[in-house]
């Protein structure tokens, strides 16, 4: 419990003392695994936000005299706590910058997909008929192909830049939001409240945006917590294959990708980002599960 408390307190870092205490109490009220997950995610967010301040070195700075030096716990020095890579770049600094890159991509990707999918789902439920049929066909197409395969072909053939890559990640799992939004909207349209506000003269925009959306938001949010770690995994997988984030930029998967060549001589290069990826996706999934248990009344 003491560990959780200090983790939670450090991670939340609220300005006011009472706020910190309240946040600490809130964290302690959670199941231990969820509390640790929240603390880890908060830490990751702080690291991502303050990457430039926190990184001890520039992420691309070379230190040729200290190539492949091991981390502290493997006999290395404190100059490079997590060791260095084959060019003498500081693994900790690269890790911090990579966390920011991977989280940003996943965050934008999730938001694009959720926005796109929800709008398409609303459109399908609103217009029915041909629009709905077309959107259903697109959903089938998207669901029918492994997204990895689609992403791979698009990336390699359009070349690679960060904006294109993020937009591409934004196509991951949009069909899930579209299905949810369509299904729940059809159900909502049969219920009294949607019909009532429509009778009161609300425009479709306000019916969907102000009345239907808040009612289906919890399901969409749970879906986002499922797809966020998937995008982290997808991004790191593609970067690992050398087809995602390109050097000199760095991401977690990218680090694992080149660390793989030094797996016997310098395993810390790939282990550090691997641990961060697993911790992050694990934490989001635990949080998502907990949220679903809280938000989904049918499970009670």
């Amino acid at each position: 419990m003491a560990i959780q408390d200090s983790l939670g307190g450090a991670a939340v870092a609220a300005p006011a003392r009472s706020g910190a205490r309240r946040a600490g109490r809130l964290l302690l009220g959670l199941p231990p695994v969820v509390a640790v997950s929240v603390a880890w995610l908060a830490l990751a967010l702080v690291v991502a936000a303050g990457a430039d301040l926190l990184a001890p070195y520039a992420y691309s700075a070379l230190d040729l005299k200290a190539r492949l030096s091991p981390p502290v716990f493997m006999g290395g020095g404190w100059a490079h706590p997590l060791g260095t890579d084959e060019l003498g770049r500081d693994v900790l600094s690269r890790l911090i910058v990579s966390v920011r890159m991977s989280l940003l991509i996943a965050l934008f990707g999730t938001m694009i997909a959720a926005g796109l999918g929800t709008v398409l789902g609303f459109l399908a439920a609103h217009f029915r008929g041909r629009v709905e049929a077309l959107i259903l066909v697109l959903i089938d197409f998207q669901a029918g192909m492994p997204f990895m395969i689609i992403a791979l072909s698009v990336l390699a053939f359009f070349g690679n830049n960060l904006v294109l890559f993020i937009v591409l990640m934004g196509f991951h799992a949009w069909e899930r939001y579209a299905r949810i939004a369509r299904g729940l909207t059809l159900a909502a349209n049969e219920q009294g409240y949607a019909a009532a506000v429509r009778q009161l003269g609300a425009t479709p925009l306000s019916v969907y945006g102000r009345h239907v959306l808040p009612n289906i938001a919890s399901t969409l949010i749970v879906s986002m917590t499922l797809s966020f770690p998937e995008i982290v995994l997808l991004e790191s997988g593609l970067s690992f294959l050398g087809l995602g984030v390109q050097p000199p930029l760095t991401s977690l998967g990218n680090m694992v990708g080149y660390g793989r060549e030094y797996i016997s001589r310098a395993p810390w290069i790939m282990l550090a980002p691997s641990v961060v990826i697993v911790m992050t996706t694990f934490s989001i999934s635990m949080l998502g599960d907990w949220l679903r248990d809280r938000l989904d009344p049918t499970l009670k």
Partner: peptide
């Protein structure tokens, strides 16, 4: 369930490399 979440949140390349590290290296 914890083991299951850990299993599917671990990227296949990380798992693959860990297995290589343990069983091959």
């Amino acid at each position: 369930m914890m083991a299951s979440v850990a299993g599917f949140t671990m990227p296949s390349f990380v798992l693959a490399l860990l297995l290589v590290l343990v069983f091959a290296v």
